[in-house]
Design a protein around this nucleic acid. Structure first.
Lengths: 129, 129
DNA sequence: ATTATTGTATTAAGTACTTAATACAATAAT
DNA sequence: ATTATTGTATTAAGTACTTAATACAATAAT
């Protein structure tokens, strides 16, 4: 499920988003050491330069930090990660409502559709358990 | 609110999506004549070639058709438009759940957040009325 | 009949992104 | 002390997208 890159958007920004998600979801934990640029690049089947570009941006934002010749680490600022999770989730919600509104769905209709689909998904999970 | 183009994705595909949305939401009605390529391009502040690329794709899918020297028209197949609306909405819903799951939210949590935000948005609308 | 407008096509240039190949300094590991 | 690994930097090439300028055939409008 990792590194599913689409050709319609710059790869480096997709990599950036993925790593952000891994941090938010806890796959990469605070203070944890990241794989090297080369390893990450190989894992995602991209050029090291491209992975480096994504990591540099993450560093600019403060989500990771670098020890010059030792490697990169996830920030230990758990509060920052919590806030990021909150913000990204809110952005998802906003985007959903905005897009549905453009399609001609009212807020009520959008909520209703989510509830229905949510129930369906829930049932699918039940079957699997 | 129209033609809000972002630099992080090919413009022609964003144009394509916008026109699709205009068709779905009924801003452009079935059988209606579209503005000329040049006019649309000017309206969206893009090069005619770029707009042409978007329109050619819409034509490939069958959403618009061309009368050689007369102009382009929205399809009259209302059923096709209904199905498109259904599909695009379902894609939005699926994308929302998938993204939230990647962030670490369960289905129930995602539904709950939508309901809450929906209520807030609804209230904002009430104020305006 | 003439003119303006339609979609369409072509060529050239610029930009951003991506890959490939290579190199270097610093330091952790041995 | 030596070696391997770290992030980092550079140069060159290819690709896709976008713009700009221009042209053409067909036909609706006059």
């Amino acid at each position: 499920m990792s590194w599913n890159l689409k050709p319609d958007r710059p790869i480096y920004s997709q990599l950036l988003e993925y790593i952000q998600i891994f941090i938010i979801s806890g796959k990469y934990k605070p203070g944890e050491k990241l794989p090297s640029v080369r390893d990450l690049a190989e894992e995602a089947s991209v050029n090291p330069n491209t992975m480096q570009k994504a990591l540099a941006e993450l560093e600019r934002v403060g989500l990771v930090y670098t020890q010059r010749t030792n490697g990169r680490f996830i920030t230990e600022d758990e509060n920052m990660i919590r806030m990021l999770k909150e913000n990204v989730a809110q952005a998802q919600i906003r985007e959903f409502f905005d897009n549905m509104e453009l399609l001609g769905f009212s807020i009520q209709e959008s909520v209703q559709l989510i509830i229905e689909t949510g129930k369906e998904r829930q049932n699918e999970c039940d079957f699997k358990m």
